[in-house]
Protein backbone atom coordinates (compact mmCIF):
# COMPACT_ATOMS: atom_id res chain seq x y z
CA UNK A 1 0.00 0.00 0.00
CA UNK A 2 2.78 2.42 0.98
CA UNK A 3 6.17 2.61 -0.69
CA UNK A 4 9.31 2.09 1.50
CA UNK A 5 9.97 5.85 1.44
CA UNK A 6 6.45 6.60 2.57
CA UNK A 7 6.71 4.02 5.38
CA UNK A 8 9.93 5.67 6.41
CA UNK A 9 8.19 9.03 6.74
CA UNK A 10 5.41 7.46 8.82
CA UNK A 11 7.86 5.67 11.10
CA UNK A 12 10.01 8.78 11.43
CA UNK A 13 6.98 10.85 12.37
CA UNK A 14 5.96 8.36 15.07
CA UNK A 15 9.49 8.27 16.40
CA UNK A 16 9.91 12.05 16.44
CA UNK A 17 6.52 12.60 18.12
CA UNK A 18 7.20 9.83 20.67
CA UNK A 19 10.61 11.22 21.54
CA UNK A 20 9.28 14.75 21.83
CA UNK A 21 6.64 13.61 24.35
CA UNK A 22 9.20 11.56 26.29
CA UNK A 23 11.48 14.58 26.57
CA UNK A 24 8.88 17.17 27.53
CA UNK A 25 6.61 15.19 29.89
CA UNK A 26 8.63 15.51 33.11
CA UNK A 27 9.50 19.22 32.64
CA UNK A 28 5.85 19.84 31.74
CA UNK A 29 4.69 18.28 35.05
CA UNK A 30 7.17 20.45 36.92
CA UNK A 31 6.15 23.64 35.12
CA UNK A 32 2.43 22.83 35.48
CA UNK A 33 2.93 22.34 39.22
CA UNK A 34 4.76 25.69 39.49
CA UNK A 35 2.00 27.45 37.56
CA UNK A 36 -0.89 25.82 39.46
CA UNK A 37 0.48 25.69 43.01
CA UNK A 38 3.53 27.93 43.07
CA UNK A 39 3.43 31.38 44.61
CA UNK A 40 6.47 33.26 43.37
CA UNK A 41 7.20 36.50 41.55
CA UNK A 42 7.51 35.97 37.83
CA UNK A 43 4.84 33.28 37.67
CA UNK A 44 3.00 35.20 34.97
CA UNK A 45 6.24 35.61 33.02
CA UNK A 46 6.81 31.85 33.14
CA UNK A 47 3.21 31.30 32.06
CA UNK A 48 3.71 33.64 29.08
CA UNK A 49 7.02 32.01 28.07
CA UNK A 50 5.48 28.54 28.13
CA UNK A 51 2.67 29.69 25.86
CA UNK A 52 4.92 31.59 23.39
CA UNK A 53 5.24 28.70 20.89
CA UNK A 54 1.45 28.67 20.58
CA UNK A 55 1.28 32.27 19.37
CA UNK A 56 4.65 32.91 17.71
CA UNK A 57 4.88 31.72 14.06
CA UNK A 58 6.41 28.20 14.12
CA UNK A 59 9.09 29.31 11.67
CA UNK A 60 10.20 31.91 14.20
CA UNK A 61 10.37 29.27 16.93
CA UNK A 62 12.49 27.12 14.61
CA UNK A 63 14.74 30.06 13.83
CA UNK A 64 15.21 30.79 17.56
CA UNK A 65 16.17 27.13 18.05
CA UNK A 66 18.69 27.49 15.21
CA UNK A 67 20.24 30.47 17.00
CA UNK A 68 20.35 28.66 20.36
CA UNK A 69 21.27 25.13 19.27
CA UNK A 70 23.28 25.78 16.12
CA UNK A 71 26.88 24.52 16.20
CA UNK A 72 27.93 28.10 17.04
CA UNK A 73 24.98 28.76 19.33
CA UNK A 74 25.25 29.40 23.10
CA UNK A 75 23.69 25.96 23.88
CA UNK A 76 24.46 24.03 20.71
CA UNK A 77 28.17 24.98 20.80
CA UNK A 78 28.99 23.44 24.20
CA UNK A 79 26.74 20.43 23.44
CA UNK A 80 28.74 19.70 20.29
CA UNK A 81 32.19 20.45 21.71
CA UNK A 82 31.84 18.59 25.01
CA UNK A 83 29.45 15.75 24.19
CA UNK A 84 29.62 15.60 20.39
CA UNK A 85 25.87 16.08 20.18
CA UNK A 86 24.59 17.85 17.09
CA UNK A 87 20.91 18.73 16.96
CA UNK A 88 20.50 20.82 13.82
CA UNK A 89 19.46 18.80 10.78
CA UNK A 90 19.08 15.57 12.80
CA UNK A 91 16.16 13.38 13.92
CA UNK A 92 16.81 14.42 17.53
CA UNK A 93 16.68 18.02 16.41
CA UNK A 94 13.28 17.39 14.82
CA UNK A 95 12.17 15.85 18.12
CA UNK A 96 13.42 18.91 20.04
CA UNK A 97 11.60 21.31 17.72
CA UNK A 98 8.43 19.23 18.05
CA UNK A 99 8.81 19.10 21.86
CA UNK A 100 9.12 22.89 22.10
CA UNK A 101 6.06 23.37 19.90
CA UNK A 102 3.87 20.90 21.82
CA UNK A 103 5.15 21.87 25.28
CA UNK A 104 2.33 24.40 25.95
CA UNK A 105 -0.25 21.74 25.02
CA UNK A 106 1.13 19.26 27.56
CA UNK A 107 1.50 21.92 30.24
CA UNK A 108 -2.10 23.06 29.76
CA UNK A 109 -3.51 19.54 29.99
CA UNK A 110 -1.33 18.57 32.96
CA UNK A 111 -2.22 21.81 34.71
CA UNK A 112 -5.94 21.14 34.20
CA UNK A 113 -5.44 17.68 35.66
CA UNK A 114 -3.57 19.10 38.61
CA UNK A 115 -6.15 21.80 39.28
CA UNK A 116 -8.85 19.14 39.41
CA UNK A 117 -7.07 17.57 42.40
CA UNK A 118 -8.51 18.89 45.68
CA UNK A 119 -5.58 20.36 47.60
CA UNK A 120 -7.49 19.36 50.74
CA UNK A 121 -6.53 15.77 49.95
CA UNK A 122 -2.87 16.78 50.00
CA UNK A 123 -3.42 18.51 53.35
CA UNK A 124 -5.04 15.31 54.65
CA UNK A 125 -2.04 13.29 53.46
CA UNK A 126 0.30 15.67 55.31
CA UNK A 127 -1.61 15.30 58.58
CA UNK A 128 -1.36 11.53 58.13
CA UNK A 129 2.42 11.78 58.16
CA UNK A 130 3.35 12.19 54.49
CA UNK A 131 6.17 14.58 53.56
CA UNK A 132 5.44 16.98 50.66
CA UNK A 133 7.12 14.78 48.02
CA UNK A 134 5.46 11.64 49.43
CA UNK A 135 2.07 13.33 49.33
CA UNK A 136 2.70 14.47 45.73
CA UNK A 137 3.73 11.00 44.55
CA UNK A 138 1.02 9.03 46.36
CA UNK A 139 -1.94 11.40 46.16
CA UNK A 140 -1.48 14.25 43.66
CA UNK A 141 0.29 12.38 40.86
CA UNK A 142 -2.15 9.44 40.64
CA UNK A 143 -5.13 11.79 40.74
CA UNK A 144 -3.74 14.08 38.04
CA UNK A 145 -2.69 11.17 35.80
CA UNK A 146 -5.72 11.55 33.47
CA UNK A 147 -4.49 15.08 32.73
CA UNK A 148 -0.96 13.82 32.12
CA UNK A 149 -2.28 11.14 29.79
CA UNK A 150 -4.46 13.60 27.93
CA UNK A 151 -1.51 15.97 27.56
CA UNK A 152 0.81 13.22 26.31
CA UNK A 153 -1.68 11.97 23.70
CA UNK A 154 -2.57 15.46 22.49
CA UNK A 155 1.09 16.39 22.22
CA UNK A 156 1.87 13.15 20.41
CA UNK A 157 -0.93 13.70 17.91
CA UNK A 158 0.04 17.35 17.39
CA UNK A 159 3.70 16.34 17.15
CA UNK A 160 2.96 14.06 14.19
CA UNK A 161 1.94 17.14 12.24
CA UNK A 162 4.55 19.70 13.32
CA UNK A 163 5.83 21.46 10.22
CA UNK A 164 7.23 24.98 10.48
CA UNK A 165 9.62 24.61 13.40
CA UNK A 166 10.87 21.21 12.20
CA UNK A 167 11.61 22.31 8.63
CA UNK A 168 13.37 25.46 9.86
CA UNK A 169 15.49 23.84 12.57
CA UNK A 170 15.97 20.29 11.26
CA UNK A 171 15.42 20.80 7.53
CA UNK A 172 13.68 18.35 5.19
CA UNK A 173 16.05 15.37 4.86
CA UNK A 174 14.35 12.12 3.79
CA UNK A 175 14.96 9.33 6.32
CA UNK A 176 16.43 11.82 8.78
CA UNK A 177 14.04 14.68 9.42
CA UNK A 178 11.38 14.30 6.74
CA UNK A 179 8.29 13.58 8.85
CA UNK A 180 4.77 13.03 7.47
CA UNK A 181 3.80 16.68 6.88
CA UNK A 182 7.17 17.42 5.34
CA UNK A 183 6.85 14.39 3.07
CA UNK A 184 3.34 15.50 2.04
CA UNK A 185 4.64 18.99 1.35
CA UNK A 186 7.51 17.63 -0.76
CA UNK A 187 5.09 15.37 -2.66
CA UNK A 188 2.80 18.29 -3.54
CA UNK A 189 5.85 20.20 -4.81
CA UNK A 190 6.97 17.44 -7.16
CA UNK A 191 5.15 16.61 -10.43
CA UNK A 192 3.00 13.46 -10.16
CA UNK A 193 3.18 13.44 -6.38
CA UNK A 194 -0.60 13.68 -5.85
CA UNK A 195 -0.90 9.94 -5.18
CA UNK A 196 1.82 10.02 -2.52
CA UNK A 197 0.29 13.10 -0.90
CA UNK A 198 -3.17 11.51 -0.82
CA UNK A 199 -1.92 8.24 0.71
CA UNK A 200 0.10 10.05 3.35
CA UNK A 201 -2.81 12.36 4.10
CA UNK A 202 -5.01 9.28 4.66
CA UNK A 203 -2.41 7.89 7.06
CA UNK A 204 -2.44 11.23 8.92
CA UNK A 205 -6.22 11.02 9.25
CA UNK A 206 -6.04 7.46 10.54
CA UNK A 207 -3.38 8.30 13.11
CA UNK A 208 -5.30 11.35 14.33
CA UNK A 209 -8.57 9.45 14.73
CA UNK A 210 -6.76 6.53 16.40
CA UNK A 211 -5.13 8.95 18.80
CA UNK A 212 -8.42 10.62 19.73
CA UNK A 213 -10.20 7.30 20.26
CA UNK A 214 -7.43 5.85 22.38
CA UNK A 215 -7.29 9.05 24.46
CA UNK A 216 -11.03 8.79 25.14
CA UNK A 217 -10.83 5.07 25.96
CA UNK A 218 -7.84 5.49 28.29
CA UNK A 219 -9.36 8.50 30.04
CA UNK A 220 -12.53 6.53 30.86
CA UNK A 221 -10.56 3.54 32.04
CA UNK A 222 -8.33 5.72 34.18
CA UNK A 223 -11.20 7.55 35.82
CA UNK A 224 -12.70 4.19 36.72
CA UNK A 225 -9.37 3.09 38.19
CA UNK A 226 -9.21 6.30 40.21
CA UNK A 227 -12.65 5.69 41.63
CA UNK A 228 -14.30 8.64 39.91
CA UNK A 229 -16.83 6.87 37.73
Amino acid sequence: MLSPEEWQAVQLSLGVAGRSVAVSLLPAIGVAWLLARGRFPGRFLLDACVHLPLVVPPVVTGWCLLLLFGIQGPLGGPLFQWFGIRLVFTTNGAALATAVMSFPLIVRAVRLGLESVDSGLEAAARTLGARPLDSFLTVTLPLMSPGILAGAITAFAAGLGEFGAVITFASNIPGETQTLPLAIYSATQSPGGEGVAARLALVSFALAIGGLLSAEFLARRMNRLLGRA
Partner: peptide, 21 residues
Protein backbone atom coordinates in the same frame (compact mmCIF):
# COMPACT_ATOMS: atom_id res chain seq x y z
CA UNK B 1 6.73 21.91 62.73
CA UNK B 2 5.30 20.75 59.40
CA UNK B 3 2.03 18.81 59.68
CA UNK B 4 3.69 15.42 59.09
CA UNK B 5 5.82 15.87 62.20
CA UNK B 6 3.03 16.99 64.51
CA UNK B 7 1.17 13.68 64.66
CA UNK B 8 -2.26 15.22 64.93
CA UNK B 9 -4.85 12.91 63.38
CA UNK B 10 -7.40 15.10 61.65
CA UNK B 11 -10.98 14.35 60.63
CA UNK B 12 -12.37 16.84 58.12
CA UNK B 13 -15.99 17.79 57.58
CA UNK B 14 -15.77 16.47 53.99
CA UNK B 15 -13.94 13.24 55.00
CA UNK B 16 -11.23 13.77 52.36
CA UNK B 17 -10.71 10.09 51.65
CA UNK B 18 -8.29 9.33 48.83
CA UNK B 19 -10.59 8.39 45.93
CA UNK B 20 -7.98 6.31 44.11
CA UNK B 21 -7.39 4.03 47.09
Amino acid sequence: LPPEQRRCGMVFQDARLFPHL
